[in-house]
């Protein structure tokens, strides 16, 4: 008697659930997005881009902020799977440890697309593709600009990002490999500024004490450090942008403002507005299209001369 009732209840709920899901699926695409956190303006811009693109496309977006913790991301993905989403966007906080949860997603038939960072897994079929900027490409772009600006001869200092971060490693590698082609340009010293304005300034102060006017170009792995360096140069009685030239990566609005003011010479874009591209790719994947494993968000270099005309259209 009792067993029968339980069975009946279960049946009813299963049917309801099935109908519910079906109804949902027919109407709108449901996508889960596991974001790392909100630790920088860049990431906030990325989050907003994904949210607003979902709104524009009429996609039902389930957003989860992991507060810099992988375990939060893993439980968010499990929740997405349980809710039966159509696809998952993941900005992974670390590179490793994703196999089990991505296997669950794969078994549930849910495609996973990585945003702005890659991961290391033995079986690459666990995710559809990654959409990121190419940090090495960014470094090369910065090196090309530097070589041209210096006419093939001069001295450079490098403000590195946080040690171990892939952005820092690859932006350095791309830059140094490309710059090696112009042997008369010397990198005087590289030191980490931890991606922060404060440390960027402090490290630049030390560089200035040591090399003084010998420095021709400062290459900073992100805008914040570059803007810190601008202040250090000013306080040393020199003119940033003229006495010492600067090129930074990211191309935030603040960097554009500094370019307009003539204090930064060029920025390499690292575009966080990945939302539209992400959903476009996901739709292709759901439609069964064959996709490249790495879809590169193409970044470009903006210089001082373009700054004034472009700044109005900058979204981040």
């Amino acid at each position: 008697m009792k067993h029968k009732r339980v069975l009946l209840l279960t049946l009813v709920s299963v049917v309801l659930l099935a109908f519910g899901c079906a109804a949902f699926a027919a109407d709108t695409l449901v996508v889960g997005f596991s974001q790392i956190g909100a630790e920088s303006g860049w990431r906030t811009a990325e989050t907003e881009s994904v949210i607003s693109a979902a709104k524009d496309l009429g996609i039902d977006l389930k957003f989860s902020d992991a507060q810099q913790k992988q375990e939060n991301q893993i439980s968010a993905i499990r929740a997405f799977i349980a809710q039966g989403v159509d696809g998952i966007l993941l900005a992974p906080v670390v590179e490793t440890g994703w196999e089990p949860v991505l296997t669950e997603a794969k078994e549930a038939g849910i495609p996973v697309i990585l945003l702005d960072r890659g991961i290391t897994v033995a079986d690459e079929s666990l995710y559809v593709c990654k959409i990121t900027s190419d940090f090495i490409f960014e470094g090369e772009q910065a090196a090309k600009w530097t070589a041209a600006e210096l006419g093939g001869k001069g001295n450079v200092v490098q403000l590195q990002g946080t040690p171990g971060a892939s952005a820092a490693i690859e932006r350095q590698k791309g830059f140094e490999d490309e710059l090696a082609k112009t042997p008369d340009i010397k990198i005087l010293e590289s030191q980490t500024g931890d991606f922060t304005m404060e440390l960027g300034k402090q490290v630049m102060e030390a560089f200035l004490k040591k090399y003084g006017n010998d420095i021709d170009v400062v290459y900073a792995h992100n805008d914040d450090m570059g803007l810190g360096a601008v202040q250090a140069i000013k306080e040393a009685g020199l003119k940033p942008g003229a006495d010492i030239k600067l090129i930074t990566v990211d191309a935030t609005k603040a960097a554009f403002e500094a370019m307009v003011a003539g204090e930064v010479n060029a920025v390499v874009e690292c575009n966080p507005l990945l939302g539209p591209l992400a959903f476009e790719t996901l739709k292709k994947a759901l439609a069964g299209e064959k996709l490249d494993k790495w879809i590169v968000q193409v970044d470009q270099v903006f210089t001082k001369d373009q700054a004034a005309s472009v700044i109005g259209s900058r979204k981040y």
Partner: peptide, 14 residues
């Protein structure tokens, strides 16, 4: 002091 040092408030790092 630290905020005027970089002429900006960097809540994450300051």
């Amino acid at each position: 002091l630290l905020t005027t040092e970089i002429r900006g408030a960097d809540a994450n790092n300051v």
